[in-house]
Computed example of a mutant assay.
Amino acid sequence: MQNALIFAAAAFFEIAGCFAVWGWWRLDKPALWLIPAAVCLGLFAWLLTFVDVEHAGRAYAIYGGIYIVASLAWLWAVEGTRPDRWDTIGSAICIIGAAVILYGPRQV
């Protein structure tokens, strides 16, 4: 459960940070938007260090599935565009893959 909370928080901060850069570059928002972008992206990277896995690459791979689902939630909640069935199917496949990586038996 702790890993799920860490991944969720990391996804929020990464997407918020990236969206702030997007807003500055693509939506003509002021350059001050880059300050919260940097803070959010730093928090995202820091949070992933708390995931209970042995290797960073595995944490990043698991996070990839979480990121996809969180991005589609952002699309709906912040940008006002509801994900379609292909978004839903694709994100379900990604979550299944992330779960296999996270919970798969490992030889120690």
Results as ranks from 00 to 15, higher is better:
residue 78 V to C: 06
residue 81 T to D: 10
residue 34 L to M: 08
residue 71 S to E: 01
residue 86 W to N: 11
residue 75 L to M: 11
residue 35 I to K: 06
residue 91 S to R: 00
residue 9 A to N: 07
residue 49 T to R: 15
residue 105 P to S: 09
residue 19 F to P: 12
residue 25 W to F: 11
residue 26 R to L: 14
residue 4 A to M: 11
residue 48 L to G: 03
residue 74 W to Y: 10
residue 46 W to M: 10
residue 51 V to H: 01
residue 108 V to C: 12
residue 12 F to A: 15
residue 103 Y to E: 08
residue 95 I to R: 11
residue 84 D to E: 06
residue 51 V to A: 04
residue 3 N to M: 05
residue 56 A to V: 14
residue 97 G to I: 00
residue 104 G to A: 07
residue 31 A to D: 10
residue 82 R to F: 04
residue 16 A to D: 09
residue 93 I to V: 14
residue 6 I to S: 10
residue 12 F to K: 05
residue 38 A to N: 09
residue 108 V to A: 14
residue 20 A to F: 05
residue 24 W to L: 10
residue 50 F to W: 10
residue 30 P to F: 00
residue 43 L to W: 09
residue 95 I to T: 03
residue 86 W to V: 11
residue 79 E to G: 09
residue 7 F to T: 01
residue 25 W to R: 15
residue 97 G to Q: 03
residue 11 A to S: 14
residue 46 W to A: 05
residue 108 V to Q: 09
residue 68 I to W: 12
residue 10 A to D: 03
residue 40 C to D: 07
residue 105 P to M: 06
residue 27 L to A: 14
residue 16 A to W: 15
residue 65 G to M: 00
residue 49 T to V: 01
residue 58 R to W: 09
residue 3 N to D: 02
residue 73 A to D: 00
residue 85 R to Y: 11
residue 83 P to N: 03
residue 7 F to G: 00
residue 98 A to K: 00
residue 44 F to Q: 03
residue 23 G to W: 04
residue 44 F to P: 00
residue 81 T to I: 01
residue 82 R to W: 01
residue 94 C to K: 04
residue 85 R to P: 06
residue 60 Y to D: 08
residue 3 N to Q: 11
residue 16 A to N: 12
residue 38 A to G: 14
residue 58 R to G: 11
residue 83 P to L: 02
residue 101 I to H: 11
residue 23 G to L: 12
residue 2 Q to Y: 06
residue 78 V to S: 02
residue 64 G to Q: 04
residue 61 A to V: 11
residue 29 K to R: 04
residue 19 F to H: 13
residue 75 L to A: 13
residue 100 V to K: 07
residue 63 Y to T: 07
residue 8 A to H: 07
residue 65 G to H: 01
residue 72 L to A: 10
residue 95 I to M: 12
residue 80 G to Q: 05
residue 33 W to H: 08
residue 104 G to I: 00
residue 56 A to I: 15
residue 71 S to F: 01
residue 37 A to Q: 05
residue 74 W to D: 01
residue 86 W to K: 12
residue 39 V to H: 06
residue 86 W to I: 05
residue 78 V to P: 08
residue 42 G to Q: 03
residue 54 E to M: 15
residue 54 E to C: 06
residue 57 G to Q: 04
residue 34 L to A: 02
residue 21 V to K: 10
residue 44 F to M: 05
residue 55 H to A: 12
residue 15 I to R: 10
residue 45 A to C: 09
residue 30 P to G: 00
residue 108 V to E: 13
residue 67 Y to W: 06
residue 28 D to G: 12
residue 43 L to C: 03
residue 95 I to P: 03
residue 35 I to M: 11
residue 55 H to D: 10
residue 96 I to L: 09
residue 49 T to G: 11
residue 51 V to N: 07
residue 19 F to A: 15
residue 102 L to W: 08
residue 9 A to S: 15
residue 16 A to R: 15
residue 40 C to E: 03
residue 77 A to L: 09
residue 91 S to E: 09
residue 8 A to G: 13
residue 77 A to N: 05
residue 44 F to E: 00
residue 68 I to V: 14
residue 24 W to R: 14
residue 83 P to A: 02
residue 73 A to N: 03
residue 72 L to Y: 02
residue 94 C to W: 10
residue 53 V to E: 08
residue 71 S to H: 01
residue 9 A to H: 07
residue 2 Q to L: 04
residue 35 I to A: 15
residue 103 Y to G: 12
residue 65 G to P: 09
residue 105 P to L: 13
residue 54 E to F: 05
residue 71 S to Y: 01
